[in-house]
Design a protein around this nucleic acid. Sequence first.
DNA 1: ACCTGAACACCGTTCAAGT
DNA 2: ACCTGAACACCGTTCAAGT
Lengths: 228, 228
Amino acid sequence: MANRTDSSQRRGESLSRDRIIEASIEILDTGGEGGLTFRALSEKLATGPGAIYWHVANKNDLLVAACDVIVARTMQACMAKASPEDTIRAIALGMFDAMNAHPWVGSALVQASGQLPGVRIVEGLGQSLRALGVPDAAQWPTVSALLNYILGVGGQNAANTQFAIARGLERSSFLHATSTTWSQLDADAYPFTRSMAAQLPAHDDRADFMAGIEIFLSGVKSSGARSH
Amino acid sequence: MANRTDSSQRRGESLSRDRIIEASIEILDTGGEGGLTFRALSEKLATGPGAIYWHVANKNDLLVAACDVIVARTMQACMAKASPEDTIRAIALGMFDAMNAHPWVGSALVQASGQLPGVRIVEGLGQSLRALGVPDAAQWPTVSALLNYILGVGGQNAANTQFAIARGLERSSFLHATSTTWSQLDADAYPFTRSMAAQLPAHDDRADFMAGIEIFLSGVKSSGARSH
DNA sequence: ACCTGAACACCGTTCAAGT
DNA sequence: ACCTGAACACCGTTCAAGT
């Protein structure tokens, strides 16, 4: 049954959901969202497209499953830090780094919000906020806001990366191009954006992201939550 | 409010970029993101697909342009409220309502972050935060965080709507189904999510969204910004 | 200049047929 | 049970040809 063919993948193991998901992640990491195709996937796995459908419902199912592998791995590394606040920071930072390393995760997560990958994040954040002393009624809105912020950053990061890839640009030249566009905006209508153009290429996405988390945590603490 | 031109296909009028965008918005509102097709569009406009390409670079260009119409209209109605804080609230609420009425705007905005529609929002938020007294160095991270939060909500809202539409569900039965799934999660691994399941169907997205904005504003004020 | 519409190179998904 | 691969119904985009 298991005939040994030396594929780049593994030895001639039989097809399985896990193997399909694993191959999908490799394709997504290499070629971005557009690269994941049932044809590309079946070629990598040395089968036909139909075979994949025996293990996977459809493309969305596949994407969510691939996303969940990354999220589960990330969350596992982030739980139970020194303080609940630090756990929230670790989750946020972990997800940021994961979505940076795998830009497709950002858009997949947005699409699969209520499903398992999103639930993992909700759970981690929720437990921490509860430990922080956020009152019952405020827990859901607070978790929801934090998750939405993280997803927003991830989605935009994914879009920027894809945009840059599609044009064969490096991240730095993409930022430089955007900066130039902004600096040429109408001075009366866009004073703020114009004044931000100069610092755009040098800015640190990760630091900005964490600054947002800190604003948020500071807001949580000052808006009613008593942390003992 | 404004229903100036209701006629979808005015005979005899020559094709133009504006007419194409107008028709695209109608299709997107009716059939969602999947409904916008060069074939559907050319049928509505009584031409061939090739004609559209004379006025529009590609599908992404079309989507961004349609998105920008909605965003520009929304921002125009939100500027210059009583206080900078109220302006921020108005922008957030306006964008929430716009993305709720046109779910495709959420995902389009995420894809077009650095482009014109995103810049309009950045400008509105930035001017307000500046007026609020947020120090220079903190302005960009703060605007960025606010925008990301809004985009995250919009993107997720779009995904949920599309998900529900694809399965022919109403919003309420979609929430009910998600609630049931959550309540059946493992009690040890997902205590928080399980305890949220019951209140999920009754929750108010708009109120939750605004609660997030308030947390954020409160964080901005308590984390260094002196608003005289 | 603007428009036509057939054609191209894809795509996700299905399904009779094989083992 | 699992896999094959041709076929179907689409897509975005192009382009020679028309006006």
